[in-house]
Nucleic acid binder design. Structure first.
Lengths: 189, 189
DNA sequence: GTCGACATGTAACCAGTTACATGATTAA
DNA sequence: TTAATCATGTAACTGGTTACATGTCGAC
């Protein structure tokens, strides 16, 4: 028999919307909870503002992909939890399997500066490279702290793969910074 | 004596605007030329649409940072070349040295998919990892073709550093894809 | 004569951020 | 009482993309 959902067109949504829907498959959550969850999961390759999360949740409800539920709390302010609907999970699976791969987007004001480094004061440039390197080091520390928590957990096998991508990217960045610092020292003694 | 420009506030412009201004320091160019130049220079960390380039050039002229010049051509359609003004170069240098470092932005619909890989058909996932890997391989080839052209050129010493960042990022991505493919094969034999 | 490269732009839209605004509860 | 964390949202803006629109010139 034909599966009806197979024939329906998927709405064209940005990947981030699907990511939020996906996070709801781990259990119902409020917008506020989602923000924290994002920061320590998909935060390295998708990081929306809080206001956008709330907007996406409203959109998911409107599409029938999520349902809203008021949760009264005595110890804290009330909140609204969202959970994924069967239609939502079906749509998500279809998006994951069928949607053509969109290219990554990477923007780096820092690399723009390095590119035009010949116009910079050498000390300022070195300073900014160090600052950039320090950022990568602290990001690496965060990811390394996460690593033992999710490794060997079967539920997080796939998130673990993306964590490995983040770890490797940070390490590459740090090595590259060291190369650059060395090159700068050699050229301007 | 006081240098007047030191005291004036720099307009807060996105890094991309400064990047376009910076590219004009290599010589006057049209919007069309700039697009091609961007693709093989800063394209890996800043890649605007053509329409945006034209908009930025108009903005730079309005700010007094660039000047426009009609160029009549007999063999091709006429064009408008832009060149940086002294005020423009001074402002650019100040932005490079003084503006606080904005964080990179990285968005990867692909990593979102991997993260939710447990909801995917394993064959579709493997297919998309291969596709992603192929993208990295062809990007690497482009960068490797560029490398001998700019290495050892003193004018391009700084662009060369950013090229090395791109090369190293591509290689890291390819290795990571191979790791993932191996992991997928082991888990679903 | 029509295709591809050259060349410039507008209009509409959408994604996403920042700043603003509100308010509850708990602990110092 | 003041700060911190919890909690949700709106409004204004901006950055950026896509699609549309126009047209030249040279080569086949």
């Amino acid at each position: 028999m034909a599966v009806k959902t197979k024939d329906e067109a998927l709405p064209r949504l940005p990947a981030g919307t699907w990511a939020i829907l996906g996070l709801l498959t781990f259990g119902e959550r409020s917008g506020y909870d989602l923000k924290k969850l994002i920061d320590l999961s998909v935060g390295h390759f998708f990081s929306p503002a809080r206001s956008q999360i709330y907007a996406e949740l409203r959109r998911l409800v409107q599409l029938g992909y999520a349902r809203e539920r008021e949760v009264s709390q005595t110890d804290r302010p009330d909140k609204r939890n969202y959970r994924v609907t069967p239609a939502g999970e079906a749509a998500l699976r279809r998006w994951l399997d069928e949607s053509p791969l969109e290219p990554d987007s990477f923007k780096s004001p820092f690399l723009v500066k390095v590119f035009f480094g010949r116009l910079m004061d050498p000390d300022r440039l070195e300073e900014q490279v160090r600052e950039y390197r320090a950022g990568a080091v602290s990001e690496l520390a965060e990811l390394e702290a996460l690593e033992p928590m999710i490794r060997d957990e079967p539920m997080t096998a796939f998130p673990y793969l993306t964590l490995r991508a983040g770890l490797s990217a940070c390490r590459h960045t740090i090595r590259w910074c060291d190369e650059v610092l060395k090159a700068l020292r050699e050229e301007t003694p």
